[in-house]
Design a protein around this nucleic acid. Structure first.
Lengths: 212, 212
DNA sequence: AAAAAAAATTGACTGCAGTCGAGATTTTTA
DNA sequence: TAAAAATCTCGACTGCAGTCAATTTTTTTT
């Protein structure tokens, strides 16, 4: 690695480190780029040669971090557990991770779910990688006869992802406290698997109570 | 109505009108508060006595507008149509409305789904009103035996809302084009009703193909 | 109807995000 | 290894969001 590349890596890290520290300490809005640059020992302009905008710094941090988590999660998850269990583990881990810092999480979710047009490409790549990790889990569940095969993988994955977003929203709007997240997620995931329609054409005794 | 209240109403309207016109014409970021104030014939400070922030102007516009749409929708919707049909009508109308202006819609969705802590209360009130409008529709579907009764109204409503958010996200990330929205929404809503699990314990011939 | 109180309006001001051209540093060329 | 080219660094500068104390307008009191 050349001197230049070496330095760039160090500088980028220093900026990221300084930014995260200051953001955590004083809040995102209360931290100026100039403070970050001073703390990282570089000029203000240099920060902008590593990150396009202030939001980008958070994005850079969260994305890198999440990618690590995803890889770990999928590796460590028990491939024989039920789809429900596996999805719960994955999305609860993701929830805990993203909400470690309320402010970062909010900015990250906003940008992830409703990205600026300029960031769409970037964001989709990350999401695609994620889906590629989830697909084998769903496929295995299909092979076990746990999940219908007449639905696209992407759609099945999308249902869980969609409920994850909903739950994040409920947390940010204060409708769910941190403790209520896990049971709520389980209920909703269960309902997604079971279906919302009344099971009229099945024997009534087969209906299980799912809601609390 | 006193002279003062009269004037306030007029001024607020003038600001909103000027803002929407300029935002639409030149884009949100390219429009400054000062331009808006000049165009509305007031001082810059006055704008801030009617709206707390720049984003608030968009919010004020969208919220008022949406509330009208909601009321109309629920009044005009056919109470005897299936839940699927009704939900599709409602959320497709909402989709079309929110995405009339791509930029406004994005800002509105970000703030609605992941609101700033300061805006949570405000936002929840609007959402609650919305849910109150949807509940009777779901209740009627339950009475018709279309939807399970062992699930909370809020949960059932939440499933559809969650898929609506997902679809908005897919539109903003370019995964779905405008024409693809309606069929995608129908597929996902259907799947939510039917459930994702394989119907192993039902007679196989009862399984319907839902995916395209 | 005049004085006092309350509320609304104003634009100069502050602080920060993001830009840009000049200068420093590293790499490539000769 | 010196000159030329490419890349990185910098902080002064621009433009705008949001604040605030002074002023004007309306309402209430006497």
């Amino acid at each position: 690695m050349s001197i230049r590349e070496e330095k760039k890596k160090k500088t980028k890290n220093a900026i990221l480190q300084a930014a995260i520290t200051l953001f955590t300490q004083n809040g995102y809005d209360q931290t100026s780029i100039e403070e970050i640059s001073k703390s990282a020992g570089v000029g203000k302009g240099t920060v902008y040669s590593y990150f396009q905008t202030k939001k980008d710094i958070i994005k850079g941090f969260c994305e890198y971090d999440l990618e690590q988590i995803h890889l770990e999660l999928v590796k460590n998850s028990n491939p024989d557990a039920s789809l429900l269990e596996q999805m719960l583990t994955i999305y609860m881990t993701e929830f805990k991770h993203v909400t470690r810092n309320r402010e970062f999480g909010r900015l990250f979710m906003r940008e992830s779910v409703f990205p600026d047009d300029a960031d769409v490409k970037d964001h989709c790549e990350l999401e695609d990688k994620y889906f590629q990790l989830l697909f084998p889990i769903v496929t295995r569940a299909q092979d076990r006869g746990e999940v219908r095969k007449d639905a696209e993988l992407l759609h099945i994955t999308a249902h869980f992802y969609s409920l994850y977003i909903l739950i994040m929203s409920a947390w940010y709007t204060g409708r769910l406290s941190t403790e209520e997240i896990e049971p709520a997620m389980e209920t909703l995931f269960r309902q997604a698997l079971e279906g919302l329609k009344a099971n009229t054409d099945i024997q009534p005794q087969h209906i299980e109570k799912i809601d609390e």
